[in-house]
Design a protein around this nucleic acid. Structure first.
Lengths: 190, 190
DNA sequence: ATTATCTATAGATCTATAGATAATGC
DNA sequence: ATTATCTATAGATCTATAGATAATGC
């Protein structure tokens, strides 16, 4: 039953990883702790040895997801084959793949709306994530001054987030694609 | 115990009205049917005589909320005192009041992300709501052709929805205000 | 000896339904 | 007689915890 410390630490990470996908896909209340633990081959009883509460797990997930996104985006900047990182990021963000693949999509389009109903730890994770995301985008958008870059980053990211949510709300329709295309066109992404 | 038909119909509307606020404020799973009924002075037992299920109630709420928003926006257009309806709508949408008053805010920033997890009736209500909203905004945004107006409506509304979500996710911070201001500035709303 | 994980469960929900009650509406 | 609403509850959750078990780690 007992496993090595390394294995235990790995299990903890696996739980965060699995929950990060399941929360995005089904929402915080749409998946139970037992199901999350089972999805990585563990049982519910061990959960509270690794996490203080379900909310605590959500906070870890927020930080993890945010970190993964920014790491991926950052890799596009350092990749010499990618000439226009913003365009690359935008076209993958506004793709039908990102729209449909809830498990791996942006937290702001799935979990953020519930943030006000969670612990301060969760709220802080979201707040920090918004901050870092805008900070990052500020370094790759167009603009003459620091200020105009920052404004541009904010309005660009807002537009992406809104477009993804609206394209999902539009269901399986022409309209859904139209929304993604319209915003890509406006940002000269496609 | 029994009431008149008129009163019964009014009660049904009161339930939809109350649920429309409570769902936005606490999320679909954050409020029970019993609490919704109690909030208008009724008890849980009568619920299923008026609604097929909790999901059915949500669908009614989506239609109601959407209708109310568009009616309000429409009144700005016909009001001769308002010279620029789009500016008026945008500045109230991107206000800190709209950010904080979850009970009365836009469904796309609160309930839309859960849409994929609900019944087809709910999904259709959302889909229809996106459609009508873009259709409406197309009539008041700038643009040379029908097509450019529609594109403009989509990108403007996407930006608003995203900005509101991000400003909420940013918590009680400078950043939260900065997001609203940045998007207002870009749209020449303030 | 310690501890990571397990099984089992207490206690608190919540949706949906059954049947009673008391008023309306013919 | 009909029916809108009520009280009560069945049955199915779900979070969090208690105590057992079987490995690790000193």
């Amino acid at each position: 039953m007992k496993v090595t410390r390394d294995k235990a630490e790995l299990n903890r990470e696996l739980v965060i990883e699995a929950a990060s996908e399941l929360f995005r896909e089904r929402g915080f209340d749409g998946i139970s702790i037992a199901e999350i633990m089972n999805s990585v081959g563990l049982t519910v009883g061990g959960f509270y040895k690794s996490f203080e509460s379900k909310d605590d797990l959500l906070a870890h997930c927020c930080r993890k997801i945010s970190e993964q996104s920014l790491t991926k985006w950052g890799s596009y900047v350092t990749n010499p084959k990618i000439t226009d990182p913003l365009k690359k990021i935008g076209s993958s963000y506004l793709s039908s793949k990102n729209r449909d693949d809830l498990k791996h999509t942006c937290i702001f389009t799935t979990l953020a709306p519930e943030a006000p109903r969670h612990s301060n730890e969760v709220k802080d994770a979201f707040s920090n994530s918004v901050d870092l995301t805008i900070e990052f985008l500020s370094t790759i958008v167009a603009g003459d001054t620091e200020h105009s870059k920052r404004m541009n980053a904010i309005s660009t990211f807002s537009q992406w987030v809104g477009a993804l949510i609206l394209s999902r709300a539009a269901g399986d329709s022409e309209l859904s694609i139209e929304i993604l295309e319209a915003v890509k066109a406006e940002s000269s992404i496609d």
